[in-house]
Every structure is written in structure tokens, then in C-alpha cells.
Amino acid sequence: MLSFNAQLELNMETEVIIETRNLTKTYRDFWGRQKVRALSALDLRIYRGEIFGLLGPNGSGKTTTTKLLLGLLFPSSGEALVFGNPADDVAKNERIGYLPEESYLYKFLNAEETLDFYGRLFRLPTNIRRQRVRDLIDMVGLGWAKKRQLKEYSKGMTRRIGLAQALINDPELIIMDEPTTGLDPIGCREMKDLILDLKRQGKTILMCSHLLADVQDVCDRIGILYQGELKEMGRVSDLLQIRDVTDIQTTKLPPEAEAEIRRVVERFGGQVKSYGAPSSTLEELFLKVVEEGKTHPGKRYQANESGDPNTLESAKED
């Protein structure tokens, strides 16, 4: 879908897509007095092709940062640069897509008209525009509701259409605000898969979230904001790596193996911190149950005679 030119390919890893220098935003009241210092001297760099997660509690300045980068707010001091140009340059909008937390779309249009409208704003040639509209609607799975006015959509459907409009112009940079907040686990999984897919296509993604698990799953680098200040930034793997522990996963071993493995570890000067069966994630269980629900519709929960709940293992065997 994308067409890179050669120069970009060379600079893939090092090209700075987003840069902020000393970016500050202070909300002032009507009289010019300071009300809230939303962002303090933020220095940030986001490179092409990476997924950057901006983390922080509510009110830490994540949304402010995205709005400053999009040109929806003017900086009080400092600079925000996108593609090397100031953020309020309208031309940059050709290459970006924005998925806000709530989809701010015109409620009186239907899905097709919405995408068509935004497509026109990019001056896409008619056939390409039409094709994209069709593809995007299929991709987000709203083909059955494409003629319905947006005011009749549920929250999840609105989010999906929002996603579609963010991608209508096949952007190089996608800015997402809380992309997985409020979605059910399936939707969440789909979103995360999509984000990873976009990365594979070479797009850059900046996402804000306070759902740490989701960020951990997809992001390459993160930044943590707190009270308008950048407290930590770096690669996820680097940051989360627990340096003084080695993680080993094996297939299921007989119980006798435990003692010997402990001995091996102690021989090398280490200590076995934990030994046992690992846990999967709740998400995996959930997805599995849903998947099974689709393939075996009649199956229902039944308590075991022994009183043990069905373990994952036994479910697998079925």
C-alpha cells in the first residue's frame, strides 16, 4: 500500500518524524493568569517506523502533547515539529492520521459518506478514494452498517469508523489517543494486531494510553509523563528488562527434574527464584473461550466432579 522512496528507506531508522524542543503549554484564564501548567519543557524524539507509547496517569499531559503535535493547540513556549516543520503547518496533515479517544465525527452522515468526505479532503482521485473507502469499511468490519447514520452507531462501531477515517489517506504517521480504552478484549486484541500490522507496513505510530498492559504489548519505545514532565523514556525491552534475573521456559518436566535443575543453577552461582507452571494471561483464556464458543456453540460451563475447575490443559485436550 505504501510507496516509499529510496531516500526514506535509507533513513528509516534515523529519520525523526516528531520532535519537540522545550515544549511547554500553560493554560491561562481569561485574564492571562496561569491556571494550569499542562506541559513543562518536553524534549521528545520519535523516529520513523517505531511505535511510541506515551504513558501517564490522567492529567499528566498526554492529550495535551498530542494536541500540540496536531496543531490543535499553540505552544506557550518551545517548538513542536512534525516531519521537520512546525506542527501548525497544515500541509503536514496530508501525511498523518488521528484517532482521538472519542470519535468526533458528523453524526448526520453515514459511514460511507463520512469516509468519502474525508477522502475528498485529501483530494484523492475518485477511483482510489472509492476503493479505499470500500477496503477500509471491510477492514473494520462495518460493511453491514455502512448506510446507517453515525448517530445510530454503538461506541465500538464509532471507534472503528474513527480508525477508518484515520487511515483514509494511508498516512505515514498515526497518532492515537487511548486506542484500546473502553474496548472489549476481542476488540482490544484486534486493535493491537492492527497496530502491529501498521508498523510492519513501515508506519510510525504515537499512542497515548494509561492501559499499561496494552502499551507493553505493542510499543517499541515509551515515555512516561507525570504532571507535565517527562519522567522516563526508552525502549520497552530495555526499561522492563530485569537485569539480574534469567528467564527459562521449558516443556513440562517430571517433578524429579526440579531438584537437579536447582543444583545446576546453584553451581553457576545463581538461585532458583521460582519453579512451577507459568500462567497464561487472562486475555488468552478469554479469547480461547470466545473462539471455542464460535466453533462449539452448544458447550456450556460444567463443574468437575472433583471440584476442580477446568484447567487450561484439560480444555485443550477437548
Partner: peptide, 14 residues
């Protein structure tokens, strides 16, 4: 009021 301007302003519309 309904913030549809956000979506609009992030498109290359003058």
C-alpha cells in the same frame, strides 16, 4: 461544541 472540528482540523483543510 461537538469537537468535530478536531477531526477536520487534522486533515489538510485550510
Amino acid at each position: 461544541k461537538y469537537k468535530t472540528i478536531y477531526t477536520l482540523a487534522t486533515k489538510p483543510v485550510r
